[in-house]
């Protein structure tokens, strides 16, 4: 397979498509439901509350420090389901491949997806592959849609945040966004930083087991912690106050943000969660999260308040304060 590339024939539905499915997809995503290779997956779910979520992944470059588009596509949808307090069970996977993509790159991506599935017990049960002409895509686009099962006693919603609640962030901000930016054409810089992309269900499951009364979970992906908190404040109709000195930020992220004129609050994460709980629960939440490998750097970063409903205020290091605004688009490096 060395030096082999994707051609239009791989999407044609014939022998090449079959080869791709057997040699790569089944090999790395193997499970009895997928192996039936029917047009749709038959899955048996006992009466339960289902959570259903979809997301598309178009990250460029497809390989970045700490992960690749395959790992991201698996983790992203798994995390969206986990943030609803549900156990992710099944994924579909739609691939749009650009002609000319190296087959071994595709295999690396699918292998990474498989690793996340092995780690979490989630199954890819159905999929589709299309090939587009060179220039019509960007190496690989992936859509994953997932189904999860929620314990009906769990009630985590963004609208549940209420004054007096405590806000916990499960680790450092901005690692994913800066790791990606460090690889972009024209913006490359040397950095040891890796994306934080990781499936959160393990940690969330442990949390919901220990503290089933948490009010709200949200993964601060695009738009970063700022966008997630603005969303929570607006949806819940409460105010939010966070304290700058408590915000966990890696030294590399802080340095890159200073250089590029970005605010770590606005930079994307792919392996972090915001958790909102009552003050009474917060010590237990923090203890539980910190005992998980993904939550070692968790910290209480602020509170939900009665004042300034719908608005997020940051209390700064020097004792001042300012509004945290919903980011207006992708943050761009400044001139100077």
């Amino acid at each position: 397979m060395k030096n082999e590339i994707i051609t239009m024939a791989h999407g044609g539905g014939g022998i090449k498509t079959q080869g791709l499915i057997k040699d790569i997809m089944i090999r790395h995503l193997k499970n009895p439901i997928l192996e039936k290779l029917d047009d749709g997956a038959c899955i048996n779910i006992p009466e339960a509350e289902l959570v259903f979520s979809t997301d598309s992944y178009v990250v460029s470059p497809i390989f970045f420090p700490g992960g690749n588009i395959g790992r991201l596509a698996a983790c992203g949808t798994i995390n969206d389901i986990a943030m609803q307090g549900a156990e992710p069970k099944y994924l579909s996977m739609g691939l749009i491949l650009e002609e000319g993509l190296a087959l071994h790159d595709l295999e690396t991506v699918i292998r990474s997806m498989g690793e996340v599935l092995n780690e979490t017990g989630v199954l890819v049960v159905t999929g589709d592959t299309k090939v587009v002409e060179r220039g019509k895509g960007s190496a690989i686009f992936i859509n994953t849609t997932g189904i999860g099962i929620r314990n009906p006693e769990i009630d985590v919603h963004v609208s549940n945040a209420r004054p007096g609640d405590v806000i916990i962030l499960t680790g450092t901000m901005g690692d994913h966004g800066i790791a990606i930016m460090s690889q972009r054409e024209g913006l490359k810089f040397e950095s040891d930083l890796e994306s934080d992309v990781a499936p959160l269900w393990g940690m969330v499951s442990k949390l919901l087991h220990e503290v089933p009364t948490v009010h709200c979970l949200r993964d601060p992906t695009r738009g970063g912690v700022a966008a997630a908190l603005c969303d929570i404040a607006e949806t819940s109709g409460s105010g939010i106050r966070i304290q700058e000195p408590t915000l966990p930020v890696n030294k590399e992220v802080r340095g890159a943000c200073n250089l590029l004129g970005l605010d770590p609050l606005n930079v994307a994460n792919e392996g972090k969660s915001l958790i909102i709980s009552s003050e009474a629960d917060s010590a237990q939440v923090l203890k539980t999260i910190k005992s998980h490998k993904l939550g070692k750097k968790a910290a209480i970063i602020g509170k939900v308040v009665y004042e300034h409903p719908g608005m997020v205020i940051l209390e700064t290091k020097i004792g001042g304060e300012r509004i945290v605004e919903m980011p207006s688009g992708e943050d761009l490096p400044r001139i100077c």
Partner: peptide, 14 residues
């Protein structure tokens, strides 16, 4: 850059 730093740090508010 000073304008942004003064706002971002909350300097103006104090």
């Amino acid at each position: 850059t000073h304008t942004v730093s003064a706002f971002r740090s909350g300097l103006r508010s104090i």
